[in-house]
């Protein structure tokens, strides 16, 4: 039940992009196109859902027993980078189709703050392994949802008349603000446990 609540909270009310602004850089630049957004979104879901529990294991089973918690920043980023690299290599070798669809987005992911963010939040909030998985999966889905929705809206805006200073990132931020407000509306849906 608790995992379920965390899962939904991290997609909607606590959407990692819309409440903590993580992953803004790629969000602003990639959301121009719907197709690219879908690809990047899917890659983020996959990487976040796997690296968050992976980092949990590394943190609980390696770093804590040796008293090396303070090295977690370096270790997490290495785990993420290595995982992304391995996935890319595996995809390239075994699945041509998937590599075409996701492969090109993978290098972008290592520098996506949301991925590292999910792992850091997982540590600070003292989640269990299962909760980490649901939190990572939910955060990834939430991020993908936000970028795909934004790409859809931006395509509609292509022919709209926007003040020159607001074009591009400006108007995207305004829309993101409204999206954040809309997502806050989900607060009532999750009952307190």
């Amino acid at each position: 039940m608790h995992n379920f609540a965390i899962f939904f909270a991290s997609i909607f009310t606590g959407n990692i992009l819309l409440t903590t602004y993580l992953g803004m850089c790629s969000f602003l630049s990639v959301s121009k196109e719907l197709k690219t957004s879908l690809g990047l979104g899917a890659a983020v879901v996959f990487v976040m859902a796997t690296t968050t529990p992976l980092n949990w294991m590394v943190y609980q089973w390696l770093l804590i027993p040796f008293g090396l918690e303070y090295l977690r920043f370096i270790v997490f980023i290495i785990v993420i980078a290595a995982f992304v690299q391995l996935t890319e290599m595996a995809l390239e070798r075994y699945s041509e189709g998937l590599y075409q669809a996701l492969g090109i987005f993978l290098p972008l992911i290592t520098v996506n703050c949301a991925i590292l963010g999910a792992s850091l939040f997982m540590v600070i909030r003292e989640y269990t392994l299962a909760t980490s998985f649901f939190f990572g999966l939910g955060s990834g889905i939430g991020w993908a949802l936000a970028i795909v929705a934004m790409a859809g809206i931006r395509q509609k805006l292509k022919s709209a008349k926007i003040p020159p200073g607001l074009e591009g990132p400006g108007i995207t931020l305004v829309i993101a603000g409204f999206m954040a407000m809309a997502f806050m509306g989900f607060s009532g849906m999750i009952a307190l446990t």
């Binding site: 819309l18 409440t19 903590t20 602004y21 931020l173 603000g177 954040a180 806050m184």
Partner: peptide, 8 residues
């Protein structure tokens, strides 16, 4: 002070 404020 809530998230949307930052975007705006």
């Amino acid at each position: 002070i809530m998230p949307p404020g930052g975007f705006f």
